[in-house]
Write a protein that binds this DNA or RNA. Structure first.
Lengths: 245, 245
DNA sequence: TACCGTAGGTGTACGCCGTACACCTGTCAA
DNA sequence: TTGACAGGTGTACGGCGTACACCTACGGTA
């Protein structure tokens, strides 16, 4: 029975269990305090045990990214490309709000993981099915950039710290200190102009969700316009063919 | 004279000299192989000497970011907002091509450095001077996202490795392996569709400069349209008021 | 000229990290 | 019964950031 207790106490390790534990740990304590030793302890196991399932820490990170990407909602069928892309990207954003360490992890790795490739592939497929040329789909993927994965490089983003002090600590929206406001009046102005509620580049209120959708729609509308006027490489980049106003 | 030689051999340390050496070292060998010990050796000095001028490694990174941001061309006077913004961002992009480690450094830090704040502030000022409301300027800054600093989160970007193997090694544009192409046909298609020459998310040819300008102009044109039709919070996000085609 | 405070470089040491490598142990096929 | 092998263990190494005590050279004052 002692050994039964043992068996119950520690489910055997597996690559999948490691990945999920790593994601949970990063969610809870932030990416920079996720170490192999840490993670092993969390799993009730000695550090080197992990290496029987994961080649090294980089592979661990790749696996974590795959877990995150796998949480993005599947394609909704029977929707126009614009609706489909919009829904998927907003889902990706929700996923990343649960895993604020993911953008940094993604950017620090340099090869695409299979799950990420599959996601990008199906996104391209959506554009192609919507009547986009391969060329236009290509450029459009670049234009969307990181927004396709639900984040957009907020530059100096309070939410990046989310896990660091524990998710229960909602980071008081510190107002812009006056001497800073004086040195950067334009920033001070836009910081107070928008009636929002979260913190980003400006220390003040700003509704990230609103900003995200604003930018996303700005892009999607521009893309729609390109596609509807029959984009080809030689007619389109706005620089060359500014449309009439 | 021995001491003269000494004096010549080692210019005294200074915060500025440290920052410039750090940037050069990161340019040459990549961010992940930049350590305090490494940098100290490079400066002919013992590691702890650096700490007389720099509080810790995070502050070093902040200083490096300031150096990079400081290299962005100043505002060109007497240009329309669109030209001014475009020129500045393309300059930022050139700077980041010289310092491929910078996006990761920027994303890994979470507070804005003074130089970055000054840059963002003057960018907002350009929009304001161009007749944008503070509100619209705010949203537009978010919409541009990391592109404002000359990069755009390429997700899986070959150039991120640039320094790692030395800048003289131009990373042969490895073609997409066939089994990958088979699993992700849409990616394979757009990889070969565009007639470009560098590597990014797709292993194949792709002119990053073209893509960058394509996306930048897509955004700028969308922004121009918003501003010209007198944007206000309640009329604009494209979702609510799709313009007529 | 003698002194001393201080700025700035040095040396040692600590506790983390990732992980190589040898080892043990329990399970299952033959 | 045995022996291969999958999977967990223990030890150890080199590298990291950096705390802390130390030394040393110089500039200002008496």
């Amino acid at each position: 029975m002692a050994e039964q207790a043992e068996t119950l106490r520690r489910t055997p390790l597996s690559r999948d269990r490691i990945m999920r534990a790593a994601v949970a740990l990063a969610d809870a304590t932030g990416l920079e305090s996720l170490s192999m030793r840490n993670l092993a302890q969390n799993l009730g196991v000695v550090p080197m045990a992990l290496y029987k399932h994961v080649a090294n820490k980089d592979e661990l990170l790749d696996g974590m990214i795959d877990v995150v990407v796998g949480e993005i909602d599947p394609l909704v069928p029977d929707a126009g490309w614009k609706q489909a892309v919009r829904a998927r990207i907003l889902s990706a954003r929700q996923v990343l709000l649960r895993h604020p360490w993911a953008p940094l992890a993604i950017e620090s790795r340099n090869m695409a993981t299979p799950a990420a490739l599959a996601y990008l592939n199906s996104m391209v497929g959506t554009f192609r099915a919507g009547g986009f040329s391969a060329d236009l789909a290509h450029h459009v993927m670049h234009a969307m950039g990181s927004r396709i994965l639900g984040f957009s490089q907020e530059l100096f983003d309070a939410s990046r710290n989310a896990g660091r002090t524990g998710p229960t600590d909602p980071a008081p929206p510190a107002p812009l200190p006056p001497e800073v406001a004086a040195r950067f009046p334009h920033l001070a102005e836009i910081a107070t102009a928008a009636s929002h509620d979260d913190a980003s580049v400006v220390g003040q209120g700003c509704d990230d969700q609103f900003e995200f959708e604003f930018a996303l729609d700005l892009l999607l509308d521009g893309i729609e316009r390109l596609q509807q006027q029959g984009w080809t490489s030689f007619s389109a980049p706005a620089r060359r063919a500014p449309d009439s106003h």
